[in-house]
Amino acid sequence: MKFKAITGKQGSGTEVKDVTYVEAARWGKYRWWRYLLGLMIILFAWMIAANVASALVAFALDGQEGVAALGRLDYAAFSPVGGFVVVMAGFPVFLAGILIAVSLIHQRHPRTLVTAREKISWRRVGHGFVAGFVPWVLLGGLGQYLLYPDTFSFNSDLKTFALFVPIALILTAIQTTTEELFFRGYIVQGTSLIWSNRVFLALASAVIFTLPHATNPESQEGGWIGMFLNYFVGTGLLYVVVSLIDGTTELAIGAHFANNIAYFLLFNWSGSFFAAPALFSISEYHARFYDIISLVLIPVFLAIAYKVFKRDEDSEPVSQSDRVGRR
C-alpha cells in the first residue's frame, strides 16, 4: 500500500507515480558520500554536541555538582523535573544535526523525511497518537494496576506535576519526532540506496533503533527477550513497517509520542532511565508482563490505525525544487 503522492516528471524526465518518502532519498543531492557525511554530522550532534548541551543544563541547575552527577548518570541528584530536562536537553541538538544534514548536504526539504507530499498530514499523525495511546494506557497501565496494584503509588505533589506537564509535552514531542526522523526517516532512506527491499529496510532500521536502547534499565531488567520484544519488535519493527506501508512516517511519529508521553505523564517506573514525576509511579518493573503486552499491542495498534481510521487518499503535488537536483 502506498500513498499516491505525486504524478509528474522528475528531473531526469522519468514519470513519477505513487511516490513514498523512501523514494525521496533520491531527491536533491544523494550520492553515497553525502549520506555518509550527513550521518557523520548527525552522529556528532547526537553523541557529542548533545552531551555538551546536557552538561550546560546540568551546570545551570546545580553547578559543578550537577556536571559531576551527569557524569555518573545520577539524574536523581537533580529535582524530578530538572533531571528530566537534563536528559532531554540533547534532543534539540540531535534534531538540529538532522535538519542540517538534510537541508545543506542533501539540499532537500526536511519534510521529505516524513512524507513525499507537499504537506504533512497532521490528521494521520493524530491517528497514530490515538492508536498508540489508547491501547497502551488500557493494557499497559491499567493492566499492570489490576495485576500488581501494590506496585502503584499516586503522586501527591500535584504542583510539581502541573509544572512538569507542559515541559514533558514539548520535550517529549522533540525527542520522539527526532528519533523518528532519524531511525525511520534518514536511516531508511539511506539504506534504500543500498537495497530497496522492504524486509531489508525494516530489519536494518529496527536493529539500529534497538542498539542505543540496549543500555536502558528496562532492557537490563527484561534481558535479551525483553529487549527483542519491546524495542526490536514492539517499537522498532512495528514503526518502520507501518511507515513503509503508509509511505510516510506520520503514523510512527504520532504513536511514538503517545507511547512516551503516557510513560512520562501517567505511569512511570521509578527505576527508569527517564524517571519522571508522573501521575502514578510504578515501583517494580514486571518484564514478562510487558513482553506479553508488547505483542498484544501490535495487532491492536494495526487494527485501530487501519480499520478504525482511514488513510488520506488525496494528495498535493510536491514542488519541483524538492525533486530535481544533481547527485
Results as ranks from 00 to 15, higher is better:
E221L: 15
A258Q: 03
Y231C: 12
Y239V: 04
N259V: 13
S272C: 06
A252M: 05
H256P: 06
N268S: 15
I245S: 12
H256K: 02
G223E: 07
W224P: 04
L266P: 10
P212F: 11
W224C: 04
A252G: 04
L251H: 08
D246G: 14
H213L: 05
M227L: 15
F228Y: 08
G271Q: 12
A252W: 03
S243D: 08
N216Y: 05
T210H: 02
N260K: 01
N216A: 08
I208N: 03
N259S: 12
E250L: 06
F228E: 06
P212A: 10
I208K: 04
H256D: 02
V233S: 09
V241Y: 13
Y263S: 15
I208T: 05
G271M: 05
F267T: 12
S243N: 12
H213P: 08
T235Y: 01
G247Y: 04
N259D: 09
W269F: 15
G247M: 08
F273Y: 15
F257K: 00
S270M: 12
F264T: 13
G234L: 00
E250H: 11
G271C: 09
G223L: 11
L265W: 06
N268I: 01
G223Q: 07
L211Q: 09
T248A: 14
L238W: 01
V241R: 10
V242P: 01
V241W: 13
F232E: 04
F264M: 09
V233F: 13
A255T: 06
P217G: 09
T210G: 10
N260Y: 09
S270N: 11
A258M: 07
V240P: 00
T249K: 12
V240F: 02
A258H: 03
H256M: 02
I245P: 10
F232H: 08
S219D: 14
T248S: 15
P217E: 12
L265S: 03
Y231M: 09
I245G: 13
T215C: 02
G223I: 02
L251P: 03
V233N: 06
G234K: 00
G236V: 07
L266K: 06
G226A: 05
N216E: 10
S270G: 08
A258D: 03
P212T: 02
G254P: 00
A258S: 13
F267W: 11
D246T: 03
P217L: 04
S272Q: 07
S243Y: 03
S219Y: 09
V242L: 10
S243L: 10
L265R: 08
I261V: 14
G222H: 07
G247W: 07
I208A: 08
V233K: 11
W224R: 07
E221C: 05
I261S: 04
G271K: 13
P217D: 12
P212I: 08
T210K: 02
E221R: 12
T210C: 04
L211F: 13
L251G: 06
F257T: 04
G222I: 05
S272A: 15
F274E: 12
L238H: 03
P212R: 08
L265I: 04
F209E: 02
T248F: 09
L251R: 12
G222E: 03
P212C: 09
S243K: 02
A258V: 00
V240N: 11
S272K: 06
I225P: 00
F267D: 12
